[in-house]
Computed example of a mutant assay.
Amino acid sequence: MREAEPPTDDGETGTPLLFGRVLDGKGGARAIGWEEAQGWRPGAPGEVLWLHLRRTAGGVYEWLQSALSIPEPTAELLVSDATRPRAFREGETLVATLRGINFNPGAEPEDMVSMQLWSDGTRLLTLRRDPLQTPRDTQADLDAGRGPTDAGSLVTSLTEHMVHRMNAAIVDMNEEIDRLEDLDIEEEDGEEMLSKVVAIRRNSLALQRHMGPQHVALESIGRDAPAWFEEHDRREIAETIALLRRFLDDIDISKESAVVLMDELRARSLAGSERTNYLLTIVAAIFLPLGFLTGLLGINVGGMPGVDDPRAFWIVVGLCGGVMLIQLALFWRWKWL
Rank of each mutant, 00 (worst) to 15 (best):
S273E: 12
T134G: 05
D250S: 12
V301A: 09
A144M: 03
L218V: 09
E230I: 05
D81W: 01
S204T: 10
E264K: 03
L158W: 01
V198M: 14
I286S: 09
I241S: 12
E160L: 02
R54S: 11
D308T: 08
P16D: 13
K196H: 15
L325V: 15
I315K: 07
E90V: 00
G302A: 12
L180P: 10
E191R: 13
S114D: 06
W40P: 12
D172T: 10
G272E: 13
W228P: 13
A67E: 14
F292N: 04
L17C: 03
R268K: 14
L154K: 05
R201V: 14
L23D: 13
L328I: 11
W40H: 10
G302P: 11
G212L: 03
T97R: 00
E231F: 00
G318A: 11
A225M: 07
I282T: 03
A217R: 00
G27A: 08
D178C: 05
E36C: 01
G20Y: 07
G28R: 05
G25R: 02
E12Q: 14
G321T: 14
G43V: 01
R55Y: 10
E187Q: 14
F19N: 11
E3Y: 06
W34S: 02
G27K: 08
G39I: 02
G58T: 15
T13H: 15
M304K: 09
L290K: 08
T126D: 03
L78A: 00
R209V: 07
D249E: 12
D9I: 08
P42T: 01
N167W: 13
C320W: 06
D111T: 02
G291F: 07
A4Q: 11
L51R: 06
F88R: 02
R54M: 07
G46N: 02
L218Y: 11
S157Q: 07
P226L: 01
V216E: 15
E181I: 03
L270I: 13
T240Y: 01
F229A: 01
D81H: 09
I315E: 06
A227G: 04
Y61G: 08
L53N: 13
M211V: 07
T276V: 06
G190I: 09
E191D: 15
M262C: 08
R266E: 12
T122D: 04
L68Y: 12
R275W: 12
E175V: 03
D224W: 02
L243H: 15
K335S: 10
P109Q: 00
R55K: 11
I241P: 08
M211F: 13
T8C: 15
N203T: 14
A96R: 00
V60F: 03
A44C: 00
V216K: 07
I241C: 06
F331M: 11
W228I: 08
A206V: 06
G303Q: 10
R209C: 03
R234A: 01
V95Y: 02
G121M: 06
M166C: 15
F247C: 03
E191N: 13
P85Q: 00
G306L: 06
I251S: 03
E5A: 11
W40V: 05
L132I: 06
